[in-house]
Each structure stands twice: as structure tokens, then as C-alpha cells.
Design a protein around this nucleic acid. Structure first.
Lengths: 153, 153
DNA sequence: CAAAAATTGGTATAATTTACCAAAGAGACG
DNA sequence: CGTCTCTTTGGTAAATTATACCAATTTTTG
């Protein structure tokens, strides 16, 4: 697996910002003509460097006014317990991110909800019904200062 | 500003998952023909519901093996201080997310880095050089259990 | 330095997007 | 209950864009 040269990185930086660029525009940006630029993009897709193309949606426009970070400790941390938790989390659309953490909590989740009462519904009907959870602690975000999908290349 | 009907929501759900669907494919999914589907998408863009189109890139493929959550307290929380902090954060590509929080910290950041030493470089050369920071606490992610860009519609 | 391999760029074709217009459907009002 | 108006839909044609193919150039290797 050959690694990424300077042009590949320019392509990734551009497409992470705007995937609707035409091949002509992208080629101009990275200093190639359309053909090799197109082939590089296809290769990046095949190699799994580019994983997908998505539209981003405005959270406010959807009425999702609440963002919460949840710290979770499990009663036990055997692989079986971790897998069970991961499977449950993965099904729920409200959970946008979930990380297994070092330190004094096991998981950190980012959850969005329309308002406090629908967040409460998420807690009552979903999260707290899971077995094996020792503690849950919610921290609320007052505002999103920065949100980027673009990894540094 | 008319709000979103069931078809708009289907469109958003689909495009949040795969923005490379052709209008024909998208139209089939939502039960319309190409023309009205196309017009709805354009309207969603103009109204700012769809904010952008981006490619997502594999973090491992870029060699970014470290994900860190950083809790930050500022010495003072005047608007001036918050703005200064927000401006600095926004410039740094390593910071993917930043939230102003309730509770006993002011900000929560998600930062990525190639390895521990480049994370250390980020701390030493950037974050700790900011004025007005009272405390910094890093929590490391062992793994990403879930990561989604798709807001629930 | 020469041969081989990889990468590039141009052109032609296929696929997709977009603009335009007529037809169907939904809502308001007498 | 019907008719007028406004909105949304669907089909067609033109323009734009993506993609496949091949020759030319550059880079790598022995």
C-alpha cells in the first residue's frame, strides 16, 4: 500500500471541504489535468482512504437544540460487556459519537436531542435500561464553538 | 420558512448517508420523479438545511492514531475572553470539535494527532501558549466505538 | 545509460445534472 | 359542489460532468 504523496493530500484536503467540486476544478486546485486527478480520486476510494461522501445538515434547522456529552462507567469491563454496550449504542441515532476512554470513565458519548424532555426520554427509555451500567453523568453543551469533519492532512 | 415534510426528511436521511446518489436513485428512494426531487434538494441547500457536501477520510489511513478530549477552564469567562479563545481554537486543524459547556469546565475539545509526541507538540506549542487558561485536562480515547455525521431526522 | 514501469494528458463517449414547460393535485371561497 | 388560484409534479431536451481509452511523457530500476 503506497502512501500518500503531496498531491493526494491536496485532493483529500479539498474533498474534505467540498466534495462537489468538479474534476476540472479539483484538478486545477491540485495542479493536474482531469485524467490523472480522476484516477487518483478513484484509487483513494478503492484503498479506503476516502470512506464516503455525505451531505451535512444544519442542527438548528432540524430543531435539535440540545447537545450532551455523557460519561459512562460500566459495572464490569470484560470484552463481552464492552461489546454488548457497543452494539446497543450503535443502534441509536441520537448517539453521534462514542469513545472507549482511558481514565475514570469507560465511555464518552455525544448525543443530540430536540429539547430537554426528549433527551430525558432518551435517558429513561434507552440508556438507563441497558444492563451493566454503573453510572451516567451528563454534561450539556451551551454552544458549538467549532465542528469540523476535516481531518488534518 | 416552511418546515420539512416527510419527503424532505427522507432526502436528508439519504444524503447524510450517501451524497453521491444520483438524482434518479434519490428520487426512487423517496418516491418522486427526478424533477421535483431535484428542486427539493436545491431548496434545502438554499434554505441552509443542507450546509455542505464533504468526503470523509479514514483516520487510520492518515496515520492519526491519537484522539483526545480536552477539558479547559479559563481564568475569566467574560465575552471578550470567550471570543479570543474561540478564534484561536478555530485556526487549528487538530481541533475537530469545540463546545462551550455547562458545569465545572468551560470548554470541551476533541483533538486528533498522529501520536503522543505530536499531541505533546500541540499542547506545548499551541494550547498552553494561549493566555487566560486556568487548567487543561486531557482524556485519551482508546477506540472510536461510533462516529456518525448523520443527525437524526 | 537504457529498458521497464508508472503516471500523465487529451479525446471521445456515456452518464448525470439542470432548465423549461405542460399537466396534475391541493387549497380557498362563493 | 364546483371553479379559480397556487403549488407541486413529471417528462423532455440541452448543458455539464464523469469516465474509459490510448498515446506521450516522466520516473524508476538495473
Amino acid at each position: 500500500m503506497p502512501d500518500l504523496d503531496a498531491i493526494d493530500r491536496k485532493i483529500l484536503a479539498s474533498l474534505q471541504t467540498d466534495s462537489r467540486l468538479t474534476m476540472q476544478e479539483l484538478a486545477d486546485k491540485v495542479g493536474l489535468s482531469v485524467s490523472p486527478c480522476h484516477r487518483r480520486v478513484k484509487l483513494l476510494e478503492e484503498r479506503g482512504v476516502i470512506t464516503r461522501y455525505v451531505a451535512t445538515v444544519d442542527q438548528k434547522a432540524l430543531g435539535l437544540h440540545v447537545s450532551v456529552f455523557i460519561s459512562i462507567k460500566l459495572a464490569r469491563q470484560k470484552e463481552e460487556d464492552l461489546n454488548r454496550f457497543a452494539r446497543a449504542i450503535s443502534k441509536w441515532d441520537e448517539v453521534l459519537e462514542c469513545y472507549l476512554m482511558t481514565g475514570n470513565r469507560d465511555y464518552l458519548l455525544r448525543v443530540v436531542a430536540a429539547d430537554l424532555s426528549s433527551y430525558e426520554a432518551f435517558l429513561k427509555n434507552k440508556l438507563t435500561r441497558l444492563d451493566g451500567i454503573a453510572s451516567i453523568e451528563s454534561s450539556f453543551a451551551l454552544s458549538q464553538v467549532k465542528y469540523s469533519i476535516a481531518l488534518p492532512v
